[in-house]
């Protein structure tokens, strides 16, 4: 054994290459959001179905009531995060041109945040009125 007790070369160390110790983070967040999405999407289906055929006033009342609003907010945040992660993987799998890939990844972020925050804001507006 030399003085070096690591497989990494000095050059790699200088360049900060190698394990960032975050390799499974994306995978793990996908799993966490998917587990959360199981009860939340079932609750979401029940909430949406309970509003079938009802008019605007009834929809506002139900969507703005605290427990329904909290469940919807959790559902929205979980879904937006989950779809952001999922689409990132799809883009990285199929878009190989570096510029298009970065553009698509950026568009994915913008889309997920816009859809998520618009839905989030709408629930808050229905909850607090004004």
């Amino acid at each position: 054994m030399s003085k070096r007790d690591t497989m990494r070369t000095p050059l790699a160390r200088v360049r900060h290459l190698g394990s960032a110790r975050t390799g499974t983070e994306h995978f793990w967040r996908q799993r966490v959001t998917s587990v959360a999405a199981i009860p939340l999407s079932i609750a979401g289906i029940v909430i949406v179905m309970s509003l079938l055929g009802r008019n605007h006033a009834a929809a506002v009342q139900i969507l703005g009531s605290p427990l329904v609003a909290i469940v919807m907010l959790l559902f929205i945040v979980t879904s937006a995060y989950h779809m952001w992660l999922g689409m990132q993987v799809i883009i990285e799998d199929y878009v190989h041109d570096e510029q298009w890939k970065l553009t698509a990844l950026m568009a994915n972020t913008f889309f997920s945040f816009t859809v998520g925050l618009a839905s989030f804001y709408a629930i808050l507006k229905l909850s607090f009125g004004v």
Binding site: A57, G86, M87, I90, A118, S119, A122
Partner: peptide, 28 residues
Amino acid sequence: RITGAALYFGMLLLAWWLVAAALGPNAY
């Protein structure tokens, strides 16, 4: 994967529905 991608764009429907509810009876 296909259903995941479809749901990705399908979330636009949910957003549209919720924002319309926030906007008022006409949009809804």
